[in-house]
Design a protein around this nucleic acid. Structure first.
Lengths: 127, 127
DNA sequence: GCCAATACTTACTATTGGTGACCATTAACT
DNA sequence: AGTTAATGGTCACCAATAGTAAGTATTGGC
């Protein structure tokens, strides 16, 4: 029987409580590389190298770490084919797909509101 | 005349491009403290100390840094009253309020899906 | 004169992010 | 036979960021 989890007795899960495991989970998903990775995995499985290219500027180590963390938390699956050169594909799980809405929204926000943000920064730095 | 910004010629803003300023902005908002701060500022202005209490576990320095960055990017306003002891209130700007939807969704996701995440971690660590 | 209260600084340490070099494997060239 | 290229990593290292703990300024109340 698989283990199931419930919040601490008499409470609900609450990211605002420093003891709550949901806060650790928030820390993982509220991260630029996580957001970009999930967005990029939107159209089906991708190979490691393709993700690396799509995420323009990410280092191999950081991408490995990001994908492993996402895999551990059940958001992506890793499929490795015994070929040479090696081929490894990553794909969102159903759980991972539930993140696409919120994380895509974040990326869009950054793109849509960047003019206001840049203007605000100028104003602040000019004071 | 206030400065206005447009994306690089012939392109749109794109967080996936490492040169695009929207990626810096994504890095700021895709952050656990930013998310929690925006969520907590939902009901009107709050004092520094109240935010600190609500964010259970954040240090003074990190909260100061977070709030200053949000202020610089035009998402919160800081109002300081000349009293002793000092009183400083922080409030979301209209721009900051447009972040509430996406960031509240992230926090909720963390709370709602934490049982699945914990189960996935167990499964991964048991392999 | 001393303490409490608040919103910070400052100096320090720990953790994370990021870089560049290297590795194992085998097909395709020269 | 030796060399090159491709892929998905790892490793040792350095830089940047997050976090900790102590200190500062101000002044009303005791």
């Amino acid at each position: 029987m698989p283990k199931t989890y419930a919040p601490p007795a008499g409470r609900n899960w609450d990211v605002l409580s420093s003891q709550c495991p949901s806060r650790t989970s928030l820390a993982r998903i509220a991260n630029k590389w996580t957001a970009m990775t999930v967005v990029v995995l939107d159209d089906g499985p991708l190979r490691f190298g393709d993700i690396r290219t799509a995420l323009d500027g990410i280092s191999g180590k950081v991408l490995t770490d990001t994908l492993r963390d996402l895999e551990r938390d059940g958001m992506v699956t890793r499929r490795s084919y015994s070929e040479v050169p090696p081929r490894v594909e990553y794909e969102l799980t159903p759980l991972g797909r539930t993140l696409q809405g919120p994380l895509t929204a974040l990326c869009r926000w950054a793109e849509e509101h960047i003019p206001e943000v840049l203007a605000a920064r100028d104003a602040y730095d000019d004071r």
